[in-house]
Amino acid sequence: MSILPGRDWWTGLPPAAGAAVMATGIISVGLYLTGYGAVSLVALVVAGVLWLVLAADFTSRLLGDRGRFRAEADTPGALTAVAATTIIGTRLAQQGWRTAAAVLLAVAALLWPGLLLNVVRHWRRRMPGAAFLGCVATQGLSVLAASLADAGHQDWLARAALVTFCLGLLCYVAALFRFDLREVVGGAGDHWVAGGALSISALAGSKLTASPVWTGSAHTALRTVTLALLAVSLVWYVVLLAAELRHPRPRYDIRRWATVFPLGMTATACLSVADPAGIAWLRPLGEVLLWIAVGAWLLTFAALVVSHLTAGRAAPGR
Rank of each mutant, 00 (worst) to 15 (best):
D57W: 08
W97I: 06
L230C: 00
F261R: 00
L148E: 10
L169F: 03
R7L: 00
A243W: 06
L157W: 09
R283A: 11
L176A: 15
A302N: 00
P14W: 05
G312I: 03
A194L: 08
T266K: 05
G48K: 10
L31H: 03
T215Y: 04
S272G: 15
L54T: 05
T300H: 01
N118S: 15
W257S: 13
P212R: 05
D253H: 15
R159G: 12
Q94D: 08
L271M: 11
L133D: 14
D253L: 11
E72A: 03
C166E: 12
S272P: 00
A314I: 01
F165T: 03
L304E: 06
T34K: 05
L271V: 07
G295I: 05
L133Q: 09
D57N: 14
A296P: 13
A19E: 06
G216F: 02
L62T: 11
R125Y: 08
W10E: 03
D180Q: 11
A293W: 15
G278D: 14
T59Y: 09
L304C: 03
D57A: 15
A296C: 03
R7H: 00
R223C: 05
G205P: 04
P316N: 12
A175L: 02
A258C: 09
A102K: 04
A175I: 02
A188N: 12
G186H: 14
V306S: 09
A43H: 07
L116F: 13
T59S: 14
M1Q: 14
L309M: 11
A100E: 13
V213S: 11
A106I: 14
S307G: 13
I200N: 05
S199M: 12
L208C: 04
A311W: 07
V294A: 01
H247M: 00
P15Q: 02
S142R: 12
R249M: 11
A160N: 10
D150Q: 12
L111A: 01
W51V: 11
A23I: 09
P5V: 04
A311I: 04
T34P: 02
A221L: 15
A55M: 02
A83C: 02
H191V: 12
Y36R: 14
L54S: 06
W281R: 07
L133H: 07
V46F: 02
F132V: 13
L148N: 06
G317D: 09
I292R: 05
A218E: 12
P76T: 07
P128F: 00
S272N: 06
W112C: 15
V29R: 09
G30Q: 08
A83S: 12
A228L: 13
V306Q: 08
V103S: 09
A258K: 05
L309K: 04
L271P: 02
G35C: 10
L162G: 05
A81E: 01
L229P: 03
G6E: 13
A218N: 10
A161P: 15
A38E: 10
G317C: 07
V53F: 13
L271A: 14
T224P: 04
L116G: 06
V260M: 04
G312V: 09
V136A: 10
C166R: 15
R68N: 06
R124V: 08
R61V: 00
W291D: 08
A16I: 06
P128D: 01
V306I: 06
L289C: 08
A204R: 10
P76R: 04
L229M: 07
